[in-house]
Nucleic acid binder design. Structure first.
Lengths: 227, 227, 227, 227
DNA sequence: TATGAATGAGACTTCATTCAT
DNA sequence: GATGAATGAAGTCTCATTCAT
């Protein structure tokens, strides 16, 4: 109890801040675990503190209330997802066939949802109950959608006046939902669903774009048939 | 609606049973209102009773606990949606062009979601927290998907070995999700999203089916261009 | 409602009263069952009515409240026990050896407790909570004790100034308690306890009385050894 | 009592733990009062908290539910009774005349029941409704009975194959019951009953044992007559 | 008289947040 | 700062009894 005060001011810089950061992370890790298991409302702040191995009082030094924890957690989720997707956001992406693009992006999202099963679940749970969280999500989504739209703009559309953002909006929402549903299905059907997600996304995109960049012309059949 | 007509006209109209049914309906109406407004967990049974204008004790005469209320509400939701969709389940449906089919079905679902904004919201909120409810939803979904799959089976598939149920599964989940998201968007974008739902549904189906029944051959462009 | 008034005054006498009596009995039977199973407080009046197969409203026509049911039940218990014991209350009883007397009376009580496991249990449960019931029990006990004391008075006491009622009081209470405890023990130990009840009753009585009536002189050992 | 002394005298006396212990005691005291007055079921947790002068929330920090309170109370009861009886558990006990032994033990029990009128009452009330409590009581009883049996084993039995535990079982149950009943009787009769309890116990023991240890030979009459 | 739906006070328990140490 | 015991409003559900039909 009263021990542990052995730290002197000579130690590596910002020990407090480092300790704080570590504690914040532990709290978010604990919250992620528990939220994905029991849901946001059913999880108590005390449980989070215990799981994070810090006193409940300390938790409230970092977060003013329970809602702030989910919000911080979702900021972290969004950063992470954005990071994963950014790895592919190179110029070359625009050159890939549509089917390859769809494949890559879908795989990244599937991976993310697999590693963070609470992401979608918690967000759905508190829809309409936490305007703050929705603002965070909307902003992050908007950013992702914008970037995806930029990617699409580099491709040759079949028709004029394509609303790239609408397409990006639709695909991001729809893929997320479907991936999440797939996660709770049995292995075989899950794999089938992942394939369908790609087919779905591709056929939707092909209704707007020829498959490649400015000149390529991969039809759906040829793409798909070759795989 | 037209059910429950087992009463012969000679009886004094069982005022008690009628009153009970009316009360159950009032409870479900109140629950629907409050759940869609505040969510399931944040709504108290007392609030429901007050909104339904009955004493709390009476509420518990009809429902053993709070969970039973949502469950009954979802049974009602499912019945209703099924009724709406069943109106179109005539033989002629199979003869319609794919685009028309998609239009009709989507419109029905949009209408349903507009009238019952709590349906999707509440279900998402309690995902993973109420196995009973999930069983109810899974059963209802399975039924709808099955029927939709039957519809598709009457059409000429482009390729062999089509998994009609998987297609029906994907489309029902994806359309539901996007309709729900659309509902919280501003009017103009909402309308645009409804159009996109039809577009992606159609393009997805066209990746499997030629447009008409056995002989018709409407491509996507012609369908869409004519609208 | 207005139906069922078909009964005319010509029918067999007291049909109503007979029906009432039957209903009262059914209520008491149901109450006995449920009380002995779950206890008085945990048993609801509705459960009693259901078990008795009568409407709850009818129950309240016969009993003003829940307490009145236990009270009536205990009046019935007491009548029954008194009847059982009265069968032996003949003049010859006084002539039996003490050990025989103890045997007979104990056996009767054991039998009664076996057939009515709720008797003791319920009485203990509501001790101090229902003055009315205690009055009933005290009166019945007093009567039994009085009669038992009368029996003892016919025997030749060893010492002067014997308080027959105190002896009867002690034995009745103590035997009842131990029989009840024995009922929840496993078969073998239960039988052993029944034997011990007889032994302590006899040894206690022998500290006051010579074994027989005026002249007999059975000591404990001889009594016991002969059995 | 003498436990928990692991605290070294240099520390600031852990005010928190002391405060906790005091609160637990206050809760148990309050529960004892109210249970013995109104019974377990009729006593509300709120009442207990008020009587203990702590907020209801604090009560639930120490006890997970109402049942845990009675259980803890009975652990305390059993400890206390065992302590009282242990004071006499010296070697000399075996040397005392039976009558003296009975006197002492009975007096201790009478004293205990006088100071804790709720002990018997509450236990009887919840018989069959709280398996947990019964386990606690059975264990404590078994311990007491075992010890009492050990005491008896040191005495010279009249007959062979005496089941010391059965005797101890019977006497402990029967004395408890009779003392409890005596407590609700008017003063004069109460005193008389206490005397009868001793007589009863002694005559029962004398049916098994000669009065003293190996050689002594005090008959009941001489013992009793001398008092 | 017979019925059973209706009533609502009140029981037990939880948990986000605070604040004395 | 750090700690975790303390707080009490509020939620879910029960049930003896009544009374309109």
């Amino acid at each position: 109890m009263s021990t542990d005060s052995s730290r002197t001011s000579r130690m590596p810089r910002k020990p407090v801040q480092a300790r704080s950061q570590e504690r914040v992370n532990r709290i978010l890790d604990a919250a992620e675990d528990l939220f994905s298991l029991r849901g946001y409302i059913a999880t108590t702040t005390k449980e989070i503190a215990i799981q994070a191995q810090i006193p409940i009082g300390s938790l409230y030094q970092f977060f003013p209330n329970k809602a702030a924890i989910v919000q911080a957690l979702f900021v972290r989720y969004n950063d992470l997802l954005h990071q994963q997707l950014a790895l592919f956001n190179h110029e070359e992406l625009a050159e890939l066939p549509l089917s390859t693009l769809v494949d890559k992006l879908t795989d990244i999202c599937v991976q993310f949802f697999l590693e963070h099963p609470g992401y979608y679940k918690v967000f759905m749970e508190v829809q309409g109950l936490m305007p703050e969280l929705e603002k965070i999500e909307d902003a992050a989504d908007a950013k992702l959608i914008q970037e995806f739209a930029m990617l699409l703009k580099q491709r040759e559309a079949i028709q004029e006046e394509v609303d790239y953002e609408a397409i990006a909006f639709v695909l991001s929402k729809v893929s997320g939902q479907l991936i999440w549903i797939a996660l709770s299905q049995e292995e075989r059907f899950q794999q089938q669903l992942f394939a369908e997600i790609k087919r779905f996304s591709l056929s939707y995109l092909q209704s707007y774009f020829s498959s490649g960049l400015k000149s390529a012309n991969n039809t759906y059949e040829s793409d798909h048939g070759s795989s």
